Simulated scan of single mutants.
Amino acid sequence: MTEAHRRQKQPELIRSQLLMVVRDILVQDGPHAVTLDAVSRRANVTKGGLQHHFRSKQALLQALCDQLFEEFQANLALAFEHEPAGPGRHARAYIRTCFDTHHHLNQVETQRAIGLLALTLPEARERWHQTMQTELAADGETPGAADRLLVCRMAADGFWFSQMLGVYALDDSHRARILALLLQLCSQKED
Rank of each mutant, 00 (worst) to 15 (best):
C65A: 15
D66W: 03
D66H: 11
D66Q: 14
Q67F: 02
Q67D: 14
L68F: 06
F69H: 14
F69L: 09
F69Y: 12
F69T: 14
F69E: 09
E70G: 06
E70K: 13
E70S: 11
E70P: 00
E71G: 07
F72H: 15
F72S: 12
Q73W: 03
Q73L: 08
A74V: 10
A74Y: 04
N75V: 01
N75A: 07
N75I: 00
N75M: 08
N75Q: 15
L76R: 11
L76K: 06
L76P: 00
A77C: 01
A77M: 04
A77Q: 13
L78D: 14
L78E: 15
A79N: 08
F80N: 05
E81M: 08
H82G: 05
E83H: 02
P84A: 07
P84M: 07
A85C: 04
G86H: 07
P87I: 00
P87H: 09
P87Y: 02
G88T: 06
R89C: 01
H90V: 00
H90P: 00
H90G: 00
A91F: 01
A91G: 02
A91R: 00
R92K: 14
R92Y: 00
A93E: 06
A93F: 05
A93R: 05
A93W: 05
Y94S: 05
Y94V: 07
I95H: 06
I95Q: 03
R96C: 03
T97G: 01
T97I: 02
F99K: 08
D100E: 08
D100P: 03
T101M: 07
H102E: 13
H102S: 13
H103Y: 03
H104Y: 09
H104G: 02
H104I: 09
L105K: 09
L105F: 05
L105T: 11
L105P: 03
N106Q: 07
Q107S: 11
Q107W: 08
Q107D: 13
V108P: 04
E109H: 12
T110L: 04
T110M: 05
R112Y: 02
L116S: 12
L116F: 08
L116K: 15
L116N: 09
L117P: 05
A118W: 05
A118H: 13
L119K: 13
L119P: 01
T120F: 03
P122T: 15
